[in-house]
Amino acid sequence: MSDTTIGRRIKQRAREDWPRRARCLVVLSLCILLPCCGAARRAIEKEAGPATETATEPATETTTAPVPAPAPETAPVAETAPAAETVNLSGALAGCRSAFPDQIAQAVARASCVIKATDLVRPLLPFPELLDRENALRKALAEQVQARAMSLLERNVQIQKLHSQLLDEERSRLPAAQADASRPPPPVSQWRQSNSESCGRLGGDSANCF
């Protein structure tokens, strides 16, 4: 057999085998492409999954807590005046004299103590602002006495004069029937009878001179 004949047969067989080889190549290509497509599809579905779930979740309703109603306002409780029987003005003043015996060196402290003692009588007075005026002068004079700018006797004279004026003002403001018929509580009577003219003289009654 010649070389020419052999070559022809090889070419003829090659032409006969080409369709089969082409089919194998197609099948091989599909085998390669299909897994890649499946993987790509799974990746796409995985990425789209959370977004789809988020979009399909129902919106939660926001509820607002009820606003509590404001508490009802309570009316201020009025201060009640102490019973006259419980007020011991004499004892309170005696405590001031005992705690601060020096009327010059301890004038300011003694005056502060007396002011607190007379505050017990204030709710019982018909015009408590009169006592406030007396205590304001008492404090100012005590500062001058302790500073040695005023004598103790002069201080007593000024307190006595103001106290007398305050009593006159109180009587003029009280109704005539009340001034005559009503009997004041003992602490009120003691305050009215204090700081008399005798307090403006040497040797005055110290128990009623404050």
Rank of each mutant, 00 (worst) to 15 (best):
M1N: 03
M1I: 01
M1H: 12
S2W: 00
S2R: 10
D3N: 09
T4L: 12
T4K: 13
G7A: 15
G7I: 10
G7Q: 13
I10H: 04
I10Q: 10
K11C: 11
R13N: 07
R13I: 12
A14T: 09
R15K: 15
W18P: 01
W18Q: 15
P19D: 01
P19V: 08
R20E: 13
C24Y: 05
L25A: 07
V26P: 00
V27T: 07
L28F: 09
S29R: 09
L30D: 03
L30F: 11
C31L: 15
L33E: 05
L33R: 10
L34A: 12
G38M: 14
A39T: 11
A40L: 14
A40G: 02
R41I: 05
I44A: 13
E45G: 01
K46R: 12
K46F: 02
A48T: 09
A48H: 10
G49L: 13
P50M: 05
P50G: 03
P50N: 01
A51E: 10
T52L: 14
A59L: 14
T60M: 06
P70M: 03
A71V: 15
P72Q: 10
E73A: 15
E73F: 09
A78L: 14
E79M: 05
E79G: 10
E79T: 15
T80S: 14
A81H: 06
A81L: 12
A81F: 01
P82R: 11
E85A: 15
T86C: 08
T86G: 09
V87G: 04
V87H: 12
A92H: 09
G95M: 09
G95Y: 00
R97K: 10
R97L: 12
R97Q: 08
A99E: 07
F100T: 04
I104Y: 00
I104Q: 04
A105F: 00
A105D: 13
A107I: 11
V108N: 08
R110Q: 14
S112D: 12
K116W: 03
A117W: 03
D119T: 13
R122L: 10
P123Y: 04
L124Y: 05
L125Y: 01
F127W: 02
P128N: 07
R133W: 06
E134M: 12
N135Y: 02
A136N: 12
R138D: 03
R138W: 02
K139Q: 09
A142L: 09
A142Y: 02
E143M: 08
E143G: 07
V145T: 05
A149W: 00
M150P: 00
S151T: 15
L152V: 01
L152Y: 03
R155C: 06
N156V: 03
N156A: 14
V157Q: 04
K161D: 08
H163E: 07
H163S: 13
H163D: 04
D168C: 10
E169I: 06
E170C: 08
E170G: 06
R173N: 05
A176I: 11
A179M: 09
A181L: 11
S182R: 05
S182C: 15
R183A: 15
P184S: 11
P184H: 06
P185E: 07
P186N: 02
P187T: 10
P187A: 04
P187C: 12
V188Y: 04
V188R: 02
W191Q: 02
R192P: 00
S194G: 05
S194Y: 00
N195V: 06
S196P: 01
S198T: 10
G200A: 14
G203H: 00
G204N: 03
N208V: 11
N208W: 01
